[in-house]
Amino acid sequence: MDTALLTRWITGIAETVRANRERLTELDAAIGDADHGVNLDRGFGAAVQALAEEPPVSPGALLRLVGGTLIRRVGGASGPLYGTAFREAGRHLGSLGDSPEVSPAELARALRAGLDGVTRLGSAAEGDKTMVDALAPAVRALESATASPAAARAVAEEREAFEAAASAALAGAEATIPMVARKGRASYLGPRSAGHEDPGAASCALVFAALLSAVNDPGQG
C-alpha cells in the first residue's frame, strides 16, 4: 500500500463526505448542533488540496499531513479527533522509518495507534455513542484479518480484510442508534439521545468504506 493508494483513499473520503454532507448534518441536527457534515467536508476538502499541493513521499508523511490539515481546518470536536487519528497513525509509521510502501497489517497497527490517540484525547470508550464505536471494531477487524503472516495471504484475502473493516465500521455505526450518549454534545440529551445514529460514527463508516474502495480500485497512477 503506497501513497497513491492512500491518496485515493483520502480523495474518496472527501467525495463520500461531500455526497453525504446533508445526511451527516441531519444526524448531527438530531442530537448535536447540525455541523458535522460541513465540518468534515471542509476538512477533507482541505486535505485533498494539501496532498495535491505537496504530494507526500510516504504513507506515514501522508497520514501526518492529513491529520495536521484536519486539526488546522475543521475545528469542533471532530477536527482534533479525526486529526489525531490520522496524525497518530502517521506518527506510528514514522517511528518505523516511513517506508514508501506499507502492508495491510502495518496499516492496521498504524490505525490502532490512531484509535489510541482518539481515546486518549477524547476519553470515550466503546458504547459511549461516538466515532469510537465505529473506529474500534473496524481497527479490530483489520487487525485480526491481517494477523497471519503476509506471505501466507492472497491479494483476495487482503481485500476481504478491508471488507471486514468496512462492515465492522458500518455495523458499529448502526449499533450506536439505541445507545445513550455519554460523550460529546449528544450526551447533553441524556436518554433523548437514544434512537439516533451518532454522526461521528456514521462518518467513520464512510471513512472505512472509502478505504475499501481505494483498495478495490486499481487507480491510474
Binding site: 448542533d33 447540525a34 455541523d35 460541513v38 465540518n39 471542509r42 486539526i71 488546522r72 481546518r73 475543521v74 475545528g75 469542533g76 470536536a77 477536527g79 482534533p80
Partner: peptide, 11 residues
Amino acid sequence: PGEIFTSPVPD
C-alpha cells in the same frame, strides 16, 4: 470566532 457552532481551530 469559529464557523457557526464550531469551535475555532488551534491555529
